[in-house]
């Protein structure tokens, strides 16, 4: 009965009237081990079909993606900005010697210098008068030491008196 079915299916198959499902049935039948002897010659055909289906494409395809070059450009920009940062402050530093200033400014500078010199002079005066003070305090200390001798002396006299 199964065989009959297969034979009718084969007939339909050869006329290209089978559906995919029926063809799957045929394939399953011919790939199994109990194929009727008079249909044996179909076997290699179905075997071949199912084997060919296993073949695979194994090669890699070089899909060249467009690499966004944004990152590279960002680094370039960063370096450029860094360099600018180093160089720009030096451009804007302006005149550097006294001769580069206007006369009024030079005048003001000199006046300020004089005033400061005067101040420092007075300050030095104050400092030298302080020196005399420290001399006085030194003498005072010497006097104190001597006074210590006196207290020592008075202590011993007290001891003697007690005795």
């Amino acid at each position: 009965m199964v065989l009959n079915n297969i034979e009718t299916l084969l007939e339909k198959y050869n006329n290209a009237e089978t559906t995919l499902k029926e063809e799957a049935e045929l394939k399953a039948y011919f790939l199994s081990d109990n194929v009727a002897p008079h249909l044996e010659h179909y076997k290699p055909m179905f075997q071949y079909f199912s084997e060919s289906k296993k073949e695979q494409y194994t090669k890699d395809v070089p899909l060249n993606t467009k690499k966004t070059k944004l990152y590279q450009w960002i680094s370039v920009a960063a370096v450029a900005i860094l360099m600018l940062g180093f160089f720009i402050p030096n451009w804007n530093s302006g005149p550097k010697t006294l001769a580069d200033y206007s006369p009024e400014e030079q005048q003001m500078y000199l006046e300020a210098k004089e005033a400061l010199a005067m101040l420092s002079n007075n300050f030095n005066d104050g400092a030298s008068s302080l020196k005399t003070l420290s001399l006085a305090s030194e003498n005072f200390n010497v006097g104190l030491e001597k006074a210590n001798h006196i207290t020592e002396f008075s202590e011993t006299t007290n001891k003697l008196l007690k005795n």
Binding site: Y13, N14, N15, A16, E17, H41, Y42, P44, M45
Partner: peptide, 17 residues
């Protein structure tokens, strides 16, 4: 397509037989 397929299948069958 069916006609072509039928022809092809029959050819294969004949040669195989």
């Amino acid at each position: 397509i069916r006609v072509n397929l039928s022809r092809a299948r029959k050819t294969i069958r004949e040669k195989l037989t």
